[in-house]
């Protein structure tokens, strides 16, 4: 009896741990996109930036043997990809949707090219944090005290982003630019510079999310390993109604759905595995429909200038 109970607890712990790791890359990418969207820029290139981050992070880590350099390379690669978007969509006022989709296609293609010679190369393991005694606590021990450093970084990043957006002057300016670019300009703020910085931050976070996939989640490089996570991150931002706190909850929810469907497949319930694999995406659609019905909530937090280009008159 006691033995059975222990088994269940171990399995539960395992599921919870994998949920957290599945949520982490989503959280990274979504936090970055949240800041970009708060400034009024809709960057649909998250998937592409994640792919570029994943491949560059993996390439740098396996070439140098230092995972930290891999992480830095992923962040820089994500920012470079984002700057491409920023220059075209902000300074040359190209259509943001088209530019974002183009960035996704470009990023996926480029990552395949760069990653070609790294397919099959073993990854560099990143040690988990291990706080003695605490991490041995049942169930919550490893969940809270024994995760890999990225998990903590993602949570800290979410809290820091909330603090920045709602407690600092810089965050206030970002929200103001996203709410009413013309007024922000009239007050003397540089709309394009604010937006460009927000887009760069979005790129850095997406790159980091990509690096998590190729360095930690499945420590190897495979073509198109982002598997639509960039798109889910985009949906998560809407789901969270542009609030970082809800983003954490949303990322965990989506992580849970994508892990639980794996377990459901393993148990062998009588639903074809293809349908179960669809589940995270179906949940995305349903979540968007449900959230979009709550207009009062959306009206307060949706950046009013989202996706609208800004050109200053001189």
């Amino acid at each position: 009896m006691r033995q059975r109970f222990g088994d269940v607890m171990t399995m539960l712990e395992g599921i919870l741990l994998t949920i957290v790791t599945a949520a982490t890359p989503l959280l990274f990418a979504a936090i970055g996109e949240l800041v970009a969207e708060r400034s009024g820029v809709l960057n649909l290139g998250v998937e592409g930036m994640m792919a570029v981050g994943a491949v560059c992070g993996f390439a740098a880590a396996s070439t140098t043997g230092n995972p930290l350099i891999g992480v830095l390379a992923a962040i820089i690669a994500g920012m470079l990809a984002a700057s491409l978007f920023g220059i075209v969509a902000l300074f040359f006022v190209a259509n943001q949707n088209a530019t974002g989709v183009a960035l996704t296609l470009f990023g996926l293609g480029l990552s395949g090219l760069i990653g070609d010679s790294f397919v099959g190369t073993p990854g560099i393991p990143i040690p988990k944090v291990d706080i003695p005694v605490f991490s041995d606590l049942p169930v919550v021990g490893r969940l809270i005290f024994g995760e890999d450093p990225f998990v903590y970084a993602a949570v800290v990043l979410a809290i820091a982003t909330w603090w920045f957006l709602f407690k600092t002057r810089g965050g206030l300016i970002v929200r103001a630019v996203g709410d009413n670019a013309a007024s922000a300009h009239a007050l003397g703020f540089s709309v394009l510079r604010t937006r460009f910085l927000a887009v760069l931050f979005g790129g850095a976070c997406a790159g980091l999310g990509g690096a998590y996939l190729s360095l930690v989640y499945t420590p190897q490089w495979t073509q198109a390993m982002t598997a639509g996570r960039g798109w889910i991150a985009l949906a998560l931002v809407v789901f969270a109604s542009w609030l970082p706190g809800r983003l954490v909850a949303g990322a965990l929810l989506f992580g849970a759905v994508s892990i639980l469907q794996l377990h459901a497949q393993a148990i062998g319930i009588g639903i074809p595995s293809q349908f179960l694999s669809m589940l995270p995406y179906i949940v995305t659609v349903i979540a968007l429909v449900v959230i979009s019905r709550n207009r009062a909530l959306l009206s307060v937090n949706t950046p009013a200038c989202l996706g609208r280009p800004f050109v200053a008159d001189t």
């Binding site: 002057r169 929200r175 103001a176 709410d179 009413n180 007024s183 922000a184 007050l187 307060v300």
Partner: peptide, 22 residues
């Protein structure tokens, strides 16, 4: 004081004013 107000709908009164007062 502008004709078409240069205010930010989603922000509070204090936040709006804080933006203009560095």
């Amino acid at each position: 004081v502008f004709q078409h107000f240069s205010l930010f709908d989603a922000l509070t009164v204090t936040e709006n004013i804080a933006l203009a007062l560095a």
